[in-house]
Every structure is written in C-alpha cells, then in structure tokens.
Design a protein around this nucleic acid. Structure first.
Ligand SMILES: NC(=O)c1ccc[n+]([C@@H]2O[C@H](COP(=O)([O-])OP(=O)(O)OC[C@H]3O[C@@H](n4cnc5c(N)ncnc54)[C@H](O)[C@@H]3O)[C@@H](O)[C@H]2O)c1
Ligand SMILES: NC(=O)c1ccc[n+]([C@@H]2O[C@H](COP(=O)([O-])OP(=O)(O)OC[C@H]3O[C@@H](n4cnc5c(N)ncnc54)[C@H](O)[C@@H]3O)[C@@H](O)[C@H]2O)c1
Lengths: 218, 218
DNA sequence: CTCGGTTTGTTCCCACGTTCACAAACTCCT
DNA sequence: AGGAGTTTGTGAACGTGGGAACAAACCGAG
C-alpha cells in the first residue's frame, strides 16, 4: 500500500514467503545439528517439504546467499534468515489467560529457544494469582499496562475464553501491543497497524473433516 | 487433479473457501444464539471479518441458498454449511502424546461441540497410563491399531515431541488414518491421499516478529 | 400490477503465488 | 586452460484468489 519511502534496502517479501521462512530456518537448524555445513536447494526443500524452485525463489527475495554449482552454507543462510525474520533479537511476550491452554503455552520450551521470552502471565481470576508456571508468576490482568510499559512488550498472546478475547485485545492495543496471537475461537477486531494471527483448532479439524468426507464419497 | 467422474453434485470448492466455511459457521452460530433468524451477506461478512463480496462468492460454491432482496436464513444456511463441511456427523478422533499440550487438547470442550469426539488418548510413556483426562483413559500407544479398527477413526492428532512425530504419523497412516493434525514443530511426510495440517506456535510468532521488526524500522 | 428499494449471484479484471525451464556462474578433473 | 557437470537465480507461463461492479431476482407499498 505505502510506497517505499527511503532508498534503503526496501525489501518487499511476499507474505507467502514470510510464512515459509521459519520452516526453512527450522530445517537448517536440523541440518546444522547433524553437522551438515552445506546444502543444495533440493536438500533444503525436501527437508522443509516444499518444491525446490519455490525455495530458491523465496530465498532470492532475501538476496543472493547461495553459490551456483555448490549450494548454500548452512550457518550463513541460517543467520541471514534469522536476521530477516527478526529473531536474532529477543522478543518479550505476554500471555493472557492461564487456563488449560495457557499453562501448556507457558511450559512450552520452543518459545525461548526461538527468540521469544515470556515476561508475564496474566489472568483475571485471582485464584490463579501467585502460581508459578515454568518459573514465571501468574499476575492480575490489570498489571498489563505496567508490564508492557516497563518491558517494551510488542507481542501478546490471548488464551482466554472467546467471550473475553475482544476485551483483552482492546486492552492490549491500548497499551501499545501491536502484534497479537489469538487462540480464542472468535474473530477479533483491531485498528490498522496491528497484526493479528489466529490459531484455531476446531477450524483445522473441520477442514480435515471436509476432505475426509470427500474421500468417503468415492 | 482428478476430473469429476460421476455426474453427481461434483462440487469443487476452492481451498481458500473451505478454510473460511468454518468461520462462517461459527459466526452463524453466534447470530443464532442471539435469536437472529435472517442476515444479509454484509451482516455475516462483518461478523466473520471478511469482505461481503468474498462471502457471497464463497457461499455461491455451495449453491444458491440466499434470497435476493432479503438475505440468508440463519438456520438453513447453518445447516447447509455444516453438511458441506461434514460436521453434521460425528467424527471420532485420537490424540497421541498426552503431555502439556495433549492435556489441554483433551480438556478442550470446543471439540465435542463441533462434531468431533475424542475416543482415545494414547501415550508411549507408561507412567501416564491409567490417568483419566476429561473422562477419557490414557492408554498405551500400541493400542492404536485396535482402537482405530474398532472405532473407525479417520482423524489423528499428534502432540508428541518433534522427534517422535514422524514415527507416530507412520503408524497412524499404516492403520488407516487419513487425516492428521500435527502440533509437533516438524515436517512430516505422508503418502498421497493423506491430509496433514500443522499448527505451529513458533512459526506464528516468527511471522509476527517479522512484521513487528518492519514496523520498528520506520 | 407497477415501481422503487434491496440484496444476491456472477462476471470481469487484477494481483499474488506457483512451477517450469534455462542461462549464468561456479567447481572439479584432466 | 578448457570442458563437463552441477546448482543457483530468475524470466515467463500458468493457476488461484480477491474485489468492484452490475444484472437478475425478490419484497412491499401504493
Ligand atoms: N484447550 C485447548 O486445547 C484449546 C484448543 C483450542 C482453542 N482453545 C481456546 O483457548 C482458550 C483457552 O482455553 P482453555 O482450555 O485454556 O480455557 P480455560 O477456561 O481453561 O482458561 C481460560 C483462562 O482465561 C482466564 N480469563 C477469563 N477471562 C479473562 C479475562 N477477561 N482476562 C484475563 N483472563 C481471563 C480464566 O480465568 C482462565 O484461567 C479458549 O478460548 C479456548 O476455546 C483451547
Ligand atoms: N506446549 C505447547 O504449548 C506447545 C505449543 C506448540 C507446540 N508444541 C509441541 O507439541 C508437542 C507436545 O508438547 P508438550 O509441551 O505437550 O510436550 P510434553 O513433553 O509435555 O508431552 C509429550 C508427550 O508425548 C509422549 N510421547 C513421546 N514420544 C511418544 C511416542 N513415540 N508415542 C506416543 N507418545 C509419545 C510423551 O510421553 C509425553 O507425554 C511438542 O512437539 C511441542 O513442541 C507444544
């Protein structure tokens, strides 16, 4: 929508590519763990479960980081992708709604290992306050503003019931959060400039059911 | 890929539309709860968070279920979408890996209320066996084949660590499961005819981080 | 019955994404 | 140094999806 203003490295990476870069990064990490130092686009593509032409085009949006006739240096490419995504720095995250799902999320080790850091767990129910989950204290939801201001939090996770999700999102946006990951099964409205992604288990299952039903019709 | 063979109602609903139908269904359920009996495409579109032209086009793939000048009958449309997706019937589901996440999933009430039914919880760790989660017994992973055969399970959920996911998927496929929902942060390979959908928390966060970083660059 | 107002279903067009295919660029062997 | 073999980066063709716009269809009033 907005034209590139400065003459800087004005990259414009397609959204579909952005969504695959983390997959490539993970595949590269796996290769690095196996002490593989170089890989072809074919190798990496099959590890990531995509077409190799697509992979090469995706990587070409970042720059020319491969060597023709040779392939890609695993560590170098890993760093370039991590830098592009923005996970060379550490992102503070707050989780709101520490019920069944919130506990699982708080305990999830994949957070920290990938550039994210849970700085606060918040819940409206005072019976949950004081509990520690994965070493982090569960605090009142009303502490949100103070924590976001103090820690410079930009990313919030919503794991409350659907009925509370819009209110929680509004509070988050008001106090400066500009990226929201929503697990509640409801559409939340946010102003321009705020990104929302949703994770919806029952939608995923329903999509599977649709295809399952079609298979059964043959 | 395959041409329509019979002259039956050979629908060919675009994948993007299939992914939105559950959202419409949920929006319709909310309207019905509020005792709204009729709605326009504009109403439903805003409840679902999409463009009204897109909504109308999506619905047109199912048939002509609206009335020009009037709108859609909420209950009727609800039923038509549910039938199209395949959630008028009840789908048995098995969950494998009853750790942090598996517990949350097993406790999730949104399962049953949307046409899915957890028939078994399986885990390889025998210390977990015998426990009941949401009224369902945790059983040995080796019971998989028997359960799938007995109950006609077509959908499996993987909530094990990444290292075990491919093995679990292979076992599922071998015993007849044709739809897999994978929560483990790894790409799993399956034969043609088997659908896999993945839910990946850290990928979602990384996508948010990318956009967050771009915002910060201004 | 007719007319004005409303809303759907669909057509047309554009943007985005995917895949093929190949020239360019590199390595290695002789 | 030259040539064969390999692999990247990208141009071009194709397919899918999104949105504006409008004719067709319906309702209700008079
Ligand atoms: N459990 C799952 O596997 C699962 C799967 C998919 C989606 N979800 C969705 O995730 C959400 C959470 O699920 P859950 O099973 O953890 O529910 P839960 O009821 O166990 O937990 C919800 C928590 O949110 C807190 N809460 C309620 N209102 C709040 C508010 N206004 N501000 C702050 N905290 C508030 C509650 O006190 C509670 O601790 C639900 O929307 C659910 O539909 C859950
Ligand atoms: N916890 C989260 O919020 C979260 C979020 C995103 C993704 N994930 C992913 O979901 C998966 C599960 O996470 P978790 O936190 O529940 O882990 P967990 O370690 O708590 O639970 C894993 C369970 O799987 C069982 N298991 C291991 N190997 C098995 C096998 N071969 N067959 C059957 N069961 C087996 C283990 O006994 C354990 O009970 C992991 O891959 C994790 O990366 C978790």
């Amino acid at each position: 929508m907005t034209a590139r203003s400065t003459s800087e490295t004005a990259r414009d990476i397609p959204e579909a590519t952005v969504a695959r870069l983390p997959v490539y990064l993970r595949a590269l990490n796996t290769l690095a763990d196996d002490e593989i130092r170089t890989c072809s686009s074919e190798d990496l593509a099959s590890a990531a479960g995509v077409n190799s032409a697509k992979l090469r085009k995706d990587l070409s949006y970042l720059g020319s980081y491969g060597t023709r006739g040779v392939g890609y240096d695993v560590d170098y490419l890993r760093y370039q992708i991590a830098r592009e995504i923005g996970v060379t720095q550490d992102w503070p995250v707050v989780i709101v709604g520490i019920g069944n799902l919130g506990h699982a999320l708080a305990n999830y080790s994949g957070f920290r290992s990938r550039g994210f850091h849970v700085v606060a767990l918040l819940d409206a129910d005072e019976r949950r306050h004081g509990e520690h989950v994965a070493g982090v204290l569960v605090r009142p939801f009303d502490d949100l503003e103070a924590i976001v201001a103090e820690q410079g939090v930009a990313i919030g996770v919503i794991a409350t019931p659907a009925a509370a999700a819009q209110d929680v999102a509004d509070r988050m946006v008001t106090c400066g959060i500009t990226s929201v990951l929503n697990f509640a099964p409801t559409v939340i409205a946010v102003p321009d400039g705020v990104d929302v992604r949703k994770v919806d288990l029952s939608i995923e299952l329903q999509i599977l059911a649709y295809h399952e039903q079609r298979k059964a019709q043959l």
